[in-house]
């Protein structure tokens, strides 16, 4: 990654134009050519530095359900339970974290009412309790990862 890549990442986290020549528009602000921007973004995606290049939807406004969940998994069962949980197509990211509640994952469903159904299935398959902590309020963050 060079300085131009870093400038691209920093600039585009704030947004990308929705217009007929968006790469040309964004490239101009970065002082590079349209084709160079396209090639660099394609490479950053191929290298997995960028996981997405496009829209980020608001799940609830799309009519879907989204819920952060936690489980307390005994250490000797962790991998087995992780495999069971991750096999659900509704599970997005799943992290092992250093706490008594040591497994944290996000469920995303097409309809909000399906969240409870998926949690019920998970509890039956693992024999463990799933703690659901859906968001009550989101506070605006001026998010950026400085590259």
């Amino acid at each position: 990654m060079d300085d131009t890549d870093r400038a691209i990442i920093n600039a585009l986290q704030g947004g990308f134009p929705i217009s007929d020549h968006p790469f040309a528009e964004a490239a101009q602000k970065l002082g590079i050519h349209e084709q160079e921007l396209i090639e660099r973004i394609a490479r950053l995606r191929a290298d997995n530095v960028l996981t997405r290049f496009g829209p980020l939807y608001h799940a609830e406004r799309l009519g879907g359900g989204l819920c952060l969940c936690a489980m307390e998994v005994p250490a000797d069962r962790f991998d087995e339970v992780a495999a069971t949980v991750n096999a659900f197509p509704e599970v997005a990211h799943n992290y092992e974290r250093a706490h008594r509640l040591n497994m944290w994952f996000v469920l995303a469903t097409e309809r909000p009412e399906m969240i409870h159904h998926v949690i019920g299935q998970m509890e039956r398959r693992t024999g463990l309790k799933v703690y659901a902590v859906p968001k009550i309020e989101e506070f605006f963050v001026g998010l950026r990862f400085e590259a």
């Binding site: 879907g64 197509p89 250093a98 995303a108």
Partner: peptide, 22 residues
């Protein structure tokens, strides 16, 4: 307060529906 560091990441992109949502 508690600070829960991640130890391992299993999936960053699984649910198709979720992959595009935050």
């Amino acid at each position: 307060r508690a600070v829960l560091f991640s130890r391992r990441r299993f999936k960053q992109r699984g649910a198709r529906y979720a992959s595009a949502a935050e």
